[in-house]
């Protein structure tokens, strides 16, 4: 009896002592973004009794995977409502798993919306329903970002969603910017931010400056889309002739040992609208020099189809 009383007293003392240590450690782990998962009543309802218990007992990741596979089955059965519920559960169980957020959003905003587009006859309803799916996708990404503020992937996906689906280029550009500020991001996020900005009315000057920064950084950035956007903006902003990029490219064509990349850049310029005689001349000269067969040489449109806008 004495031993039991003493034992319980020791346990009590330890319980009180450990309390603050445990809550501080929990806080610390929260800060490292461990344990972002919180068991909640709604999760219990979603995962079912057995799933919830298993999830609490150290099989949370495995249960989430299982539900994820079920969501995949639902996709094959074209049950988008069920998919959304399962995605909600999976992401609640594993909020740190970026793939879950990313693919949940993709399934909703791309596949789900495409399904409506192909199957809804009434154009008004179709438009409304598609928008609904876009918003669900956006919601997944925003919640995913809340749980994973360091993820460049989710911001990148969000940017694409704004750009391709919601046509909100300003927000798209902002999302790409966020992506390019995060560790591990791929280089194209910076370009995409600038490209999206180029589409925003009233911010052409800013977009032009950012694109030029990219252009001046290195010839690795000289891509077809970059040339297209810059040339469009040069026209729109009435950039003085001597500052236009074709001059830089033509000058570059004279650099020894750079014939290959210079020719690629010149053809890209032509493809995206440049009709400057110096550009065409430089391109032809390189074709001669590099002995490019006729069928692979850059073709000029019969009529100058330079965009007027």
């Amino acid at each position: 009896m004495k031993g039991r009383v003493l034992g319980i007293l020791v346990l009590l003392a330890w319980g009180v002592a450990k309390f603050s240590f445990e809550s501080r450690l929990e806080q610390r782990m929260e800060n490292t973004r461990l344990g972002g998962f919180k068991p909640t009543v709604s999760l219990r309802q979603q995962a079912g009794q057995a799933g919830f218990i298993a999830a609490l007992g150290g099989l949370r990741a495995a249960v989430a995977d299982l539900l994820w596979i079920r969501a995949h089955t639902a996709w094959h059965d074209v049950q988008y409502g069920r998919m959304k519920l399962l995605f909600d559960t999976c992401t609640a169980m594993q909020p740190r798993r970026i793939l879950f957020w990313d693919l949940s959003a993709w399934h909703m905003a791309w596949n789900g919306a495409a399904h409506i587009e192909n199957h809804e006859p009434d154009p008004v309803v179709r438009k409304a329903k598609m928008r609904e799916f876009f918003m669900v996708g956006k919601d997944f990404l925003q919640r995913g970002i809340e749980s994973n503020p360091d993820s460049w992937e989710l911001y990148e996906r969000l940017g694409t969603l704004y750009k391709d689906k919601l046509k909100d280029f300003e927000r798209a550009s902002k999302a790409y910017d966020e992506a390019s500020n995060r560790p591990g991001h791929l280089e194209y996020t910076r370009r995409f931010a600038a490209y999206a900005l180029a589409e925003v009315p009233g911010r052409e000057r800013e977009a032009y400056e950012r694109l030029m920064t990219l252009f001046n950084e290195s010839e690795h950035e000289w891509l077809l889309t970059l040339f297209r956007h810059i040339q469009n903006l040069e026209a729109k902003l009435a950039i003085p002739d001597e500052q236009r990029i074709w001059r830089t490219v033509v000058k570059f064509a004279g650099t020894p040992g750079k014939a290959g990349s210079a020719y690629a850049a010149l053809t890209d310029l032509i493809k995206t609208g440049s009709r400057e005689p110096a550009v065409i001349e430089a391109a032809r000269a390189l074709e001669q020099k590099m002995d490019i067969p006729a069928e692979r040489r850059v073709k000029l449109p019969a009529q100058d189809k330079r965009p007027t806008d």
Binding site: E22, E26, L34, G35, F37, G58, R60, A61, Q94
Partner: peptide
């Protein structure tokens, strides 16, 4: 607190 593997796996 001892259940870190679910997060570590991510």
């Amino acid at each position: 607190l001892f259940n870190v593997v679910d997060d570590i796996a991510v």
